[in-house]
């Protein structure tokens, strides 16, 4: 009986450890659709139209335009391969700006425009003093899309 118990314990530890390990390390994180990339959005079938989805990408430099009369803006979101236009209603978060990453939530319309009502700006995890930044120092940057996922 104690031998049986020991085997049971080892099997249990393997099961729990395996499941948790699969969750943490396995390729599970990669096929998680936490957000789509612009190239995936472009390839959407009609199934996905008008479904609330999240898209993550980099705001294209110089693409941001504000409306003079009401709150809201339009910009382009890119993942390096494809670029989609996004319209947004509301006040953007303080950290939102061109050249930074952002995750937007909203609907992909049939007219190939992304209508968003929520921007989640990521303030990047890079911290450095302003003098260094002006001197053009870049910290060892990670892969951009990867830094969004984690």
């Amino acid at each position: 009986m104690p031998g049986k118990k020991k085997i049971g314990m080892v099997v249990s530890i393997l099961l729990v450890g395996g499941a948790l390990g699969y969750l943490a390390l396995g390729n599970f994180g990669e096929n998680v659709v936490y957000f789509f990339t612009p190239s995936e959005v472009k390839a959407f079938t009609t199934d996905y139209y008008q479904k609330k989805v999240r898209v993550g990408g980099m705001v294209v430099e110089g693409s941001m335009e504000t409306y003079p009369d009401r709150l809201g803006l339009t910009f382009q979101l890119t993942d390096g391969e494809a670029t989609i236009p996004v319209t947004f209603e509301g006040i953007p978060p303080d950290l939102f700006k061109e050249g930074q990453g952002a995750v937007v939530e909203g609907y992909w319309t049939g007219e190939h425009r992304f209508e968003s009502n929520l921007i989640m700006a990521k303030h990047s995890e890079d911290y450095m003093p302003i003098e260094l930044k002006r001197a053009g120092v870049e910290l060892p940057r990670k892969d951009f899309m990867k830094s969004l996922v984690e």
């Binding site: 314990m9 249990s12 099961l15 729990v16 499941a19 948790l20 699969y22 969750l23």
Partner: peptide, 12 residues
């Protein structure tokens, strides 16, 4: 995953 983990842990 949750089912597996907690059936085992709770069992013990």
């Amino acid at each position: 995953i949750y089912d597996v983990v907690f059936t085992v842990v709770s069992f013990w």
